[in-house]
Design a protein around this nucleic acid. Structure first.
Lengths: 177, 177
DNA sequence: TAAACTGTCGAACGTTTGTTAGATTAATTC
DNA sequence: GAATTAATCTAACAAACGTTCGACAGTTTA
């Protein structure tokens, strides 16, 4: 078997274990309350070993945040892309919202960690995550601007504000459990 | 002037300064990221002095959380109590929601700190805050159970779930700014 | 088999954490 | 004005923090 195809697996697996542990811990305890020793223990290694895969705690949390948004983005995009362009507004929005919720509750830790810790992460990390965040907001803005959606809504409605209300409400359901 | 009427003021003022500083810091940075030295500095004193007024950091955050909910509770209660018992459902709910929002954005730090840090606070603190929290939830449950509100809603609607959605959405507006 | 590379460990670093305790100043009481 | 009390400060504590680094075993390459 080709060595280049098997050997990269080890490091990548450790990396993934670190991210998984970090996402789960951040989600339930917050960013500052989770130590690198906690993360390492969750990934079955010692604190020093983590630094073979990541340069800092901030680098870990940034990747967790990015993965969390990317997951929701991909799910929503994939869902609405499977529908015809002229799908009625209510069915289109319902599908998008459901995809968002499903990701939040099934691909649990990364996406919900993002919702919960975003505000309390170092400003530098927040800025670095903003690009991914804006990409997702753009997706919803495009959905809301489709003609059949605009026709279904009161014309004076602020679409950006509607998008904020929509995503905010979906994320707020995390508190239900 | 009676001595007992003036002298308690000093300690109470320091206590209030500590709580104000803590609420503001918790709100913007989270619970674990704020040190007692940060809080003390925000209250114009040194870390050791804080312990004259509070036994621990947890005692401070608990009081911040309790005040935060009590403020929203009192505002909403006061607002709806001023309305006639048979106020139409839409006006009643609108008034309650507006009171909630207004407190969140004007009596800013305590209430919004509560929304933001509740999930990441030590479990013991969360349990201690639950009493106050349930008191506020009960207030909304009572509003939603008034006859004119029940009539305005689909009868199969789960009122507890509606209350969760309602409060959750209102709190989510904090992300808008 | 020797050499090189991968991934993890153990121990230490300087800093910061929550908290305690004794000294010290400011205010009140007698 | 002396004695008490109230409130703050200074300095220290042990523990935990993020991070660094040299040693080391396991695997891959030559």
């Amino acid at each position: 078997m080709s060595p280049a195809a098997t050997s990269p697996a080890k490091a990548d697996l450790s990396r993934a274990r670190i991210l998984d542990a970090a996402a789960a811990l951040f989600r339930e305890r917050g960013y500052s309350a989770v130590s690198l020793r906690d993360i390492a223990a969750g990934a079955d290694m010692k604190a020093g070993s983590v630094y073979y895969h990541f340069a800092s705690k901030e680098e870990i949390v940034l990747e967790v945040l990015n993965i969390g948004i990317a997951a929701v983005h991909d799910q929503v995009l994939q869902t609405v892309a499977a529908l015809p362009e002229d799908t009625p507004a209510d069915r289109l929005l319902r599908a998008g919202m459901l995809a968002h919720l499903r990701t939040l509750f099934e691909f649990n830790d990364y996406s919900s960690a993002n919702v919960r810790i975003y505000h309390h992460v170092p400003e530098e990390v927040r800025r670095a995550n903003a690009t991914e965040r804006r990409r997702y907001e753009r997706l919803w803005d495009q959905l809301l601007q489709r003609p059949q959606v605009r026709e279904a809504l009161r014309p004076e409605l602020d679409l950006k504000l509607l998008r904020l209300l929509l995503i905010g409400s979906l994320n707020a359901t995390l508190d239900w459990f």
